[in-house]
Design a protein around this nucleic acid. Structure first.
Lengths: 213, 213
DNA sequence: ACTCTGGCCTATCGATTGATAGGGTAGTCG
DNA sequence: CGACTACCCTATCAATCGATAGGCCAGAGT
């Protein structure tokens, strides 16, 4: 499984390559990071990397898959679920944000390399994720639970917030990942809800679910 | 002056270098873009670039300056101004977003290269910009106009929204830059205002100012 | 007519890139 | 013991990088 921030003690060389590569990609970009830098961070020589990954590209590809696997799983589940769109959007946001905070890998660079032609095949899954998010928002607007406005604006903003969260808070142990996730999700909900006062009630409900499940 | 999207017709070679470089940096990253690619997009050979800029780094540095000059100007003006923090935050957001939409250069790559050690000296100005934004938010919370919450969360989200706007909408002619800017600013205000219903009143007020000034 | 300058060109530099070839060694299994 | 595997090493490759040197040429100034 993908390691969390609390269990970075005993990692295999392969996992340490993913970890150090993710951090260097986050700071200097995919193209701006050389395989020699990654190897030095891990504590091995550059050619030794290729005993664990056939190329630099496959290192990045695996990081993309780690990011997308969890995000699309949660988004599709909430998009297909029934019940209040507001609660489902809130649940999705909290799950995604707290995953980002908890994941040991710094996945900041994932979004920015999707434009790269080398990773064009990964974009389809990313589009599915976007579609699942948009569906929840449209349902919320149609049901009157959300304020009447352009769903694409709300969708853009949510995408940007999640992207910013990845870039700025991923990979470094968050003091309280869950609380941070709830605060961000509440911010979004307050902006989209027709009745912003319902935020506290929704938050309390989801927190209760999480403590029970 | 920095060209706008509506006047990309007759540009000097130097300006076309900035334009094409900004687009390539946005798509492939600073490190991922070679000077040969930039030259090919402009329609000249690679060494000819160095008759207009002493290095690849100074091309990026000039794009950073273009971005920061306008953003810090507006942010500091609104941070120093008196009157309702909500109105000042709204004015700042609209000004910044519409500038991004109108600027011919695609400034997406600016934020991501600030971590790069090559551009460490540009970071100070960026920090000043962040400080000015945070000051307005704190003032709004202290005055009771904004909802009581962690100002750093609101500040983070606003930073992420502006960053996302730059990445996703910069450099391509926006159908209606002003309307888009107002919609985004309204989204943010609805989330931070203690009384979200005031959004429409604030928007109307600022629109009136802009039409008069 | 002569010179100078700006802007582009070709040719080429040293450094760095991702990746390969092949050898050494510790541990495991028969 | 001998073979095999896993893992890391040194040495090296061709390709590409940013940047420099120096030549060609059109247009302006005198």
């Amino acid at each position: 499984m993908t390691p969390t921030v609390t269990q970075t003690g005993t990692l295999s060389t392969r996992e340490r390559i993913l970890l150090e590569a993710s951090r260097l990609f986050a700071r200097n970009g995919y193209r701006g990071t050389s395989t020699r830098e990654i190897a030095a961070a891990v504590g091995i020589r550059q050619p030794s990397l290729f005993h664990h990954f056939p190329s630099k590209q496959t290192i990045m590809a695996e990081l993309i898959d780690i990011d997308h696997a969890e995000a699309t799983r949660v988004a599709k589940r909430e998009a297909a679920a029934s019940g209040s769109p507001a609660v489902r959007l809130y649940r999705y946001l909290v799950a995604d944000i707290s995953f980002i905070c908890r994941c040991a890998y710094d996945l900041s660079s994932v979004e920015s390399v999707l434009n790269d032609s080398d990773f064009g095949d990964k974009r389809q899954r990313h589009n599915e994720l976007q579609g699942a998010r948009l569906a929840i928002i449209e349902e919320g607007i149609d049901s009157g639970e959300f304020v009447k406005s352009d769903p694409l604006i709300a969708h853009k903003v949510i995408t940007w917030i999640l992207r910013g969260d990845i870039v700025d808070t991923a990979g470094e142990p968050q003091a309280d990942a869950d609380d941070f996730a709830h605060q961000l999700a509440s911010f979004v909900l307050r902006a989209v809800l027709a009745d912003p006062d319902r935020v506290d009630e929704i938050r309390a409900g989801v927190e209760l679910e999480m403590n029970q499940g």
